[in-house]
Amino acid sequence: MNREMKKIISNIIWTPVSISVIAIAVLTGCQDFLSEEDPSNLTPESFYTIPDHAEAALAAVYADTRFIGDGAGIFSSNWQLLEAPTGTSTTETAQNSDLNNLYGLIYDGRTGHIINWWNGLYKVIAQANMVLDKVPAITPMDEAQKTKILGEARFLRAWAYFYAVRLWGNIPLITDPQTAASENFRPSPSPQEAVYQVIVDDLKAAEAAGLPWMDVSGRVSQAAVKSQLAKVYLTMAGFPLSLGNEYYQMAAQKSAEVIEYANANPNLINLFPTYGDLHDAMLLS
C-alpha cells in the first residue's frame, strides 16, 4: 500500500469522526435551537408582578376606549354609528358606502361601524377582565392603590357593557380573561337583566374604591361613577327592563349626590344650571 493510499484511508477514517464530533458538539450546544422567546413582547406569565404592571395594564384599558374616534373606512369615524341614523350629524362625502347606508337607515352585521363597535367594546371588556384577574395577585402592593385600580377597571368594563347592552340587548357576558380553551370562548347571549346586574355591581364596586371626587388627569372619578350609575338606573327604569319607579328613585338619588357635592364645591364641579345648556354650542365653547 503506497503512502497516498494510506493517507486517503486515514482521511476516510478521521474526517467523519471529526465531523461527527463537531456535529455533536454543535447539536448539544444548541439544545434550545428550536425553542423561542420573543425579546420584544411580554407574555402573560412574565408580567403582572409589581404595582407598576397594574398601572400599565389599566392604561391599556383606557387606551382602548378611544376606539370611538377611530376610523370606519374612508371619511368616517366610529362615532357616526350613533350620529348618522339619529340625524345628529350630516356628511358631504359619498365615498363611504357604509356611511351612506347609515343615513339611509340601512345597516346590518356587515356594516363597518357596527362591527367596529362590537369589537371595540369587547376589547375594552377583555382588557378590563385582564386587570381584574391579574392585579389582585400582585404582592406586595399598597391595598388602597390596588382597590383604586380595580375600581377604575370595573367602571370601564361597566361603561363598555352599558353601550353594548343598549345597542344589542341580550349579549354574551364575559367576565374573565379568555384563551382558546376557555369554556365561554364561544359564548351564548346572556339575558340583558344579567348584563345590567354586572354593570350595577361593577359601578357599585367602583363607587366604593376610594376614587377622588374629581380627577383632572382624566382618570375615573367618584363623580363620574355616580353619574354613570344614575344613567344606568334611569335606563333600567324604562324600556326594555321597565323596572319603574324604584329605579327612577335610585337614579334621582345618585344624581342628587353629584349635584349636592357640586353645589358645595363649585370650584371642583361646575354644573350647568339647566339640562338644555348642555346642547348650546356657544356655552360649550
Binding site: A59, A60, Y62, A63, Q127, S217
Partner: peptide, 17 residues
C-alpha cells in the same frame, strides 16, 4: 406594550392583550 393612555395630557405606556 404599545398601548398608551393619555393622563394629565401626557402619554402613559400600557400593556394589554
Amino acid at each position: 406594550s404599545n398601548y398608551s393612555a393619555i393622563w394629565n395630557e401626557t402619554q402613559v405606556g400600557g400593556t394589554g392583550i
